[in-house]
Amino acid sequence: MTEDIIVKTSARLMTPFIQMFGLYVIFHGHLTPGGGFQGGAIIGASMILLAVVYGLEEGEKRLGHDASTVLESSTLFYALIGLIGIAAGYSFLANRVAGIPVGTPGALFSGGAIFAINIVVGLKVASTGKTLFYALSREERP
């Protein structure tokens, strides 16, 4: 696509930091402002940046179609986390009452199901953002 060396170099340098920040927002979703949706949007934006600068094929190499299909199905994992509540004899998506360890409030590993669901939702939003961009930006269609 573009041959501009400044754009290419800065995109390559920025991408790891953007993705690291996205992961931080996801993993601290229960402690600080943010969460799965916001962090997932940041990671999805970093992948869109790569695709815009290096072209669609090059971006596809970073996160292949098969991988994003798997991540796309993480709604299923969400439902599976919800089934823990039923297995423990409580309602669907029950958290503390179902015996999921909640941990000390304020620690990184706390919040029980909230922590897990944040990660699942973050992966899902990131892959959906990438999928939507690719679906809408195909250049030549028959």
């Binding site: 229960h30 600080t32 943010g34 000390t104 409030p105 304020g106 706390s110 919040g111 909230i114």
Partner: peptide
């Protein structure tokens, strides 16, 4: 109830 500091997340 949830062990999360972020009320919106909880």
């Amino acid at each position: 109830d949830t062990g999360a500091m972020n009320i919106v997340a909880s």
